[in-house]
Every structure is written in structure tokens, then in C-alpha cells.
Design a protein around this nucleic acid. Structure first.
Lengths: 110, 110
DNA sequence: ATTATTTATCGTAATATTGCGATATAGTTT
DNA sequence: AAACTATATCGCAATATTACGATAAATAAT
């Protein structure tokens, strides 16, 4: 018990869930916001930008990276992080399709 | 410890996180998929559609509802659930803006 | 070589999530 | 009213997440 029953759902459903889950924390939304704002590989800054301890941020970065929402490259003694368009694109496509389908079907409802 | 430090983030970051978190489970993605597919208020069916026990599904429905992704209306002794366009729309807008900004800025990166 | 800087990992406490059996609630049917 | 149907809630066990201090690892600067 306590474990998500991934095996019962489709590949796509699991993929969307993993991506959405990675964004399911305000610190991680804030990290994406920041990476987008500065528009580049960011080496270092992130820890100073957020009101969380360094190990905590490192952990959040790892989760975003594992989910495919950011990329990280070693650059000297720092690590450069930036947005991974692929992950973000998948989510954008998903919601776009959902909303389009809703509009087409008119969502006659309650 | 263990609690998310919501108070340190913006209203919008928290809102996106709450919506994304609600979709951060394949069962909940599957529920949205199903509601979209049948394109109506669904009274009853959901439990038969998913490989999870009734109390578990009830819990997932509650989370989707709390996050603002679905609506539920009492209809006789059943409850009709359907997609709430507002929540889905917010996520769609968020990802659209993110991707647009990325394109404009060209995302020069690693 | 020593020191400083940057990021990751370990360990751990607090809390949250997932899943479900048992049971409650509320409306429907007979 | 009794039985049935649909959904919610309670309580609990298993597991996952969040946060951070301490510490490690790896490169840079002195």
C-alpha cells in the first residue's frame, strides 16, 4: 500500500502525471519562472533566489531534471541549469488538446 | 518540517502548483481523460472505469474537485462529475505563456 | 597545498499521499 | 419500511515528499 499503481495506467497518462507532479510544488514553479526570466543557463544564482536551504533546492532541481523539465550542464565548478523545452512542450500540448477537445464537444455540463 | 513553505511563494506560483499537483497522479489524469471522452456529466461510471477501489477513486475525485479541475453536482442518488474548464484553462494558459516566452527569448542554452 | 566556492548526497524528522476495508450517508426502488 | 445503489468518510498501514544540518566531492582561486 501507499505506492502509486502506475502499471494500471497508460504510458501517456503516467508521463503526464510525472511531468505535472514535478510542477506540483511552488518552489519548482518558482525555479522554472526564474530560469525563464533570466533566459539562460544559470550557474549558481538559484540558491540566492529562493527562500529555501541549498540542499532543499538541490533536491527540487533534481526532481525537475528527472522529470525532463530542466537540463543541467557542468560548467567549471558550477552547474548550469536551463529549461528543457521538450518536457514543457509535452505539457503545453496536453492542455491544448484537452481544451480544444472541450471546445469542440462544447462540454455540456452540470 | 515536511510541510511545503507556501507562504514564501507568489499567489500564482502556489495556484499553478496546486493545479499541477492535482494532475500529478496517473489515476487523476485517467479520470480527466475519461470525463473528456464521454463528454458529459458522468454519474456512476467512473468506479467501473478505473482499476482502483471505490474509496480510492472517491478520494481522487475530491482532490480534482478541490483543485478546481472538475465539478460535481448531485443528481438523484448519484453525483455527476465533469471537467471544470476554468482550472484546465489556467494550466493551458500557463504553459502557453511559458512556451511563447521561451520561443521569443530563443532559450540559448547548454 | 590550502582555502574558498558550488553543488550533491546522507541521514533524519515532520508531514503528506496512496490505497483500501469497513462503515456511514443519502437517495431510489420495491 | 426494507433493500438496493451510489458516493463519502473513517481509520489505518505502507510509502513518498519536504526540509535541512552535516558532510562529501569537485573545481577554482590564492
Amino acid at each position: 500500500m501507499g505506492t502509486t499503481k502506475k502499471e494500471h495506467f497508460t504510458e501517456r497518462q503516467n508521463e503526464i502525471a510525472i511531468l505535472a507532479k514535478a510542477l506540483g510544488h511552488p518552489a519548482r514553479v518558482a525555479i522554472l519562472d526564474y530560469l525563464l526570466k533570466v533566459n539562460a543557463c544559470i550557474c549558481g544564482d538559484i540558491v540566492n533566489e529562493l527562500p529555501l536551504a541549498q540542499p532543499t533546492i538541490s533536491q527540487h532541481l533534481k526532481e525537475l531534471k528527472n522529470a525532463g523539465l530542466i537540463k543541467g550542464n557542468v560548467e567549471g565548478n558550477a552547474i548550469c541549469y536551463c529549461i528543457d523545452e521538450k518536457g514543457l512542450g509535452k505539457l503545453k500540448d496536453y492542455f491544448e488538446i484537452m481544451m480544444n477537445t472541450l471546445e469542440i464537444k462544447k462540454n455540456e455540463c452540470c
